[in-house]
Each structure stands twice: as structure tokens, then as C-alpha cells.
């Protein structure tokens, strides 16, 4: 449910993100730099962080189950 809320919160952010026309220059420089290789770096970072975060939550879930089992 928490994830549901988080995604629901993120969606309008993504939708509204194009509202700002003039991007800050650091963004231009960082995303467009070096033949746009930084866009690839950013994408890979997002994927690794996303899957890492998912694994962390999964870990916590298992931990909770283990605790419950120990008590029972």
C-alpha cells in the first residue's frame, strides 16, 4: 500500500515535470555532457537504485517474517 501511494505521488510529478520550460543550466550540462553519455549513466543509476531499493524492502519483509517465526 505504501508503494502504491508512493507511485501515485510520483505520477503527477512526472506529468507536471514538463511544465517548466527553461531547465536549469546544471541540468543541461549534466544530461547533455560528453556526447550525452551522462543520460546513460543516469538511466543505469536509476535502474540500480530502483532494484536495490526493492531488494532492501524485500529484505525487510523477510526479516519481519523471520521475527514472527521466532516468536511463534
Amino acid at each position: 500500500m505504501k508503494k502504491t501511494l508512493l507511485l501515485a505521488l510520483l505520477m503527477p510529478g512526472v506529468l507536471l515535470a514538463n511544465a517548466q520550460d527553461a531547465a536549469p543550466s546544471w541540468l543541461e550540462n549534466s544530461l547533455y555532457g560528453n556526447g550525452k553519455i551522462n543520460a546513460v549513466i543516469a538511466v543505469i543509476a536509476v535502474i540500480l537504485l530502483g532494484i536495490g531499493g526493492w531488494l532492501y524492502r524485500q529484505d525487510r519483509r523477510l526479516k519481519r517474517l523471520e521475527d514472527a517465526q521466532r516468536k511463534a
Binding site: K3, L7, L10, V14, L15, A17, N18, A23, L27, L31, Y32, K36, N38, A39, A42, V43, V46, I47, G50, I51, W54
Partner: peptide, 28 residues
Amino acid sequence: VHVGLLFCGLGLVTGALWARATWGAFWT
């Protein structure tokens, strides 16, 4: 569905980044 939504989120965010770098906007 849970894992699918994870990949959906990743697809959206990575797509937004790539779109910003190519088309100039996070969302079109």
C-alpha cells in the same frame, strides 16, 4: 503485478531522463 509495477516505475523514470536528453522535456 508487484514486480511489474517496479519495472513500470523504472521504465517511466528512465524514459523521462532519456526524453529530457533527446527531446528536451521530461514528459511529452
